[in-house]
């Protein structure tokens, strides 16, 4: 029975991750990013896209997919991630993506700034956004 529930859980987790996408404004110059680009931008190892334009990562506060996203790009759990950010934030060497309280604010910001990039569920992608990275 335990195995059955474990399989169901893994299947659902996989489904959730499969629905998570990285998006930008429809008119942004970026067409596609790879996993390394996404990790470097969201972990503030770089503040530039591969074409040299400024990257502004943003995210939804308290999002259900946030932990999955960072686990996927960095292998860090929320506690390890907070430790990572703390050393960067308070030495002025980096900062986490700007957090927004609701999806509409996040999407509005994405649609109106060509440098903004975020991760959302596939179902939340609007006509004014484009997907620049899909998780395998």
């Amino acid at each position: 029975m335990k195995t059955f529930f474990l399989l169901i859980y893994l299947l659902l987790s996989s489904q959730c991750l499969g629905q998570m996408v990285v998006v930008m404004a429809k008119d942004a110059d970026i067409q596609n990013l790879n996993d390394q680009h996404v990790a470097n931008i969201f972990l503030t190892r770089t503040n530039r896209f591969p074409n040299g334009l400024k990257a502004i990562p943003i995210e939804l506060k308290n999002s259900d997919i946030r932990a999955n996203f960072y686990e996927e790009i960095s292998g860090k759990n929320p506690t390890q991630l907070m430790a990572y950010w703390t050393t960067l934030i308070f030495s002025g060497k980096g900062k986490p993506p700007k957090g927004y309280n609701n999806v509409s604010s996040l999407i509005s910001r994405l649609e109106n700034n060509l440098g903004c990039i975020s991760y959302i569920s596939l179902a939340q992608v609007t006509d004014d956004l484009k997907i620049v990275y899909r998780f395998p």
């Binding site: 907070m82 430790a83 703390t86 050393t87 308070f90 030495s91």
Partner: peptide, 16 residues
């Protein structure tokens, strides 16, 4: 703040 050892730069940040 100087970056000699993390304890110098992040002395006040106990959480670090």
């Amino acid at each position: 703040l100087v970056p000699l050892l993390q304890g110098t730069e992040l002395r006040s940040i106990s959480y670090s």
